Each structure stands twice: as C-alpha cells, then as structure tokens.
Simulated assay, not measured.
Amino acid sequence: MFAWKVGPALAVGNSVIVKPAEQTSMSAYRMAQLAYQAGIPEAALLVVTGHGEDTGQPLGLHSDVDVVSFTGSTEVGRKFLEYSARSNLKEIVLECGGKSPQVVFADLHDIDAVVDDMLNSAFWNMGENCSCGSRLIVEHSIKDQLLEKLVEGLKGWKVGDPTDPQTHIGPMVEQAHFEKVRGFIESAKRVFTKSSSSG
C-alpha cells in the first residue's frame, strides 16, 4: 500500500508525508529507509508516526497539504472530508473498508482455480485488507461442491509464525482486531448451528 500510493506521487514530482497506522509504523519506516538508499531525497519523503488525533488530524487540517489519500475506516474517512472543508478544500482520496463479494456461478470453467482465487482474496494478509473477498455469493447448484473444495483448500493455509516462509496466515495486527474477528466466527457458528438444527 505504501508503494502504490507513494511511488506514483514521487514519480510525478510531489513531496509526500506518510502517516502509517500506529500498528504498522515500522514497515513504513523501513520502506522510507529503502527509498532514501535508492536516491529519493529525504525532504521529498517524510514518515510521521502517532495516533490519528495527534498526526493524521493536523495533516488533514494543514493548509499546505494539497491532497490526502487515506485508507481505513469509513468513520475516519468522513473526518478527512470535514478537515478538507475546514481548511483549504484539499483533494481527499478515500479507500474505506468494505465487504467485497466474490460471486460464483455454476458455469465456471475451472472450480479449482476459482477456489484458489477465493482463498487468496479472503485470506491474503490475514484478511486484513480493504479489498478482502469477505463475502461469498454462490449459485445454489454448486454451493456444496464449492464449500467442500474451499474447506479442503484451506487446509493448505498454514497458520503460524510470520517469519516462517511456510506460514500463510500469521497473527492479527492487534488484540482488538483478533477479538473482533473471533466474535464474527463465533456468531457464524451460532447461526450455522441454529440453521442446521432447524433444517
């Protein structure tokens, strides 16, 4: 995400200030180090860290900032629109969280390839990305076959230490997110158990 936002902005001659999420500041710092080693002037690429109220809000309100590109929650995205209105009407580019559907019809050509794509979309980066394919919309006639293949395919996704090259799914970014995801899983289990017992 750092690269696809910062790279094009620098390439066309802009200076960039990056404010990473509090949970991922070290990776942003390392990307900046690599950029400096590659010859990007330090004055053209700055990384500021901290909580949103302390660093993100002042950037959003600063009249010398012409554009803000924000990836994150819809709630905070709305705040950046407000900051723009209260300052210099800077351009705001928002990429806010969503529930991206994966739609599968019965006339698919290669179910194994579709399953691989679905698993990658849903679980890449522990599913912690705004384009995560987190909902399945499947034609009823292939539902059972597809679910069976998804369950089988998921067995190949090793959970474990993120420094192990064999690991596909590492830890969640923070305890609060872990609890949120676990809550979704428990809720889904309750719904599944209820529908199975009544059907």
Results as ranks from 00 to 15, higher is better:
F2T: 06
A3K: 06
K5F: 08
K5D: 06
K5A: 07
L10E: 06
L10N: 10
L10M: 06
V12H: 02
S15M: 04
I17H: 03
I17D: 04
V18C: 05
V18M: 09
P20G: 01
A21V: 05
T24A: 03
S27V: 14
M31S: 06
A32N: 15
A32V: 13
Q33W: 08
Q33I: 08
L34A: 06
L34E: 04
L34S: 00
A35N: 09
A38N: 08
G39Y: 01
I40P: 00
P41Y: 05
E42W: 09
A43K: 15
A44R: 04
L45P: 00
L45N: 04
G50R: 01
G52W: 07
G52V: 12
E53P: 10
E53R: 05
E53K: 13
T55P: 03
T55N: 10
T55I: 15
T55Q: 07
G56P: 09
G56A: 08
G56W: 06
Q57K: 13
P58F: 11
G60Q: 10
G60K: 03
D66Y: 08
S69I: 05
F70A: 07
F70S: 01
T71H: 01
S73A: 10
E75G: 12
V76A: 02
K79N: 11
F80D: 02
F80A: 00
L81K: 13
E82M: 07
A85Y: 11
R86D: 09
R86C: 00
S87P: 03
S87M: 08
N88E: 00
V93A: 13
L94C: 01
E95Y: 04
E95N: 05
G97C: 09
G97N: 00
G98S: 01
G98A: 01
K99S: 12
K99N: 15
P101N: 08
V104C: 04
V104I: 09
A106P: 11
L108T: 13
H109G: 08
D110R: 04
I111V: 13
I111K: 06
V114K: 00
D116L: 10
D116W: 05
D117R: 13
L119W: 07
L119K: 03
N120S: 02
S121L: 01
A122D: 00
N125E: 00
N125R: 08
G127L: 02
E128Q: 14
N129R: 10
N129C: 10
C130R: 03
S131C: 14
S131I: 15
C132A: 11
C132G: 05
G133R: 03
S134K: 01
S134G: 09
L136F: 03
H140D: 13
S141V: 07
L146I: 04
L146E: 09
E148P: 14
V151K: 04
G153C: 14
G153V: 00
K155F: 02
W157Y: 08
W157N: 09
W157P: 04
D161F: 10
D161W: 06
P162T: 13
P162W: 00
P165C: 10
P165L: 13
G170H: 06
P171H: 09
P171E: 12
P171R: 04
E174R: 14
E174F: 15
E174K: 12
Q175N: 01
F178L: 01
E179L: 11
V181P: 02
V181A: 06
E186K: 13
F192A: 15
F192K: 08
F192G: 11
F192Y: 14
K194Q: 05
S195V: 15
S196R: 02
S196V: 11
S198D: 13
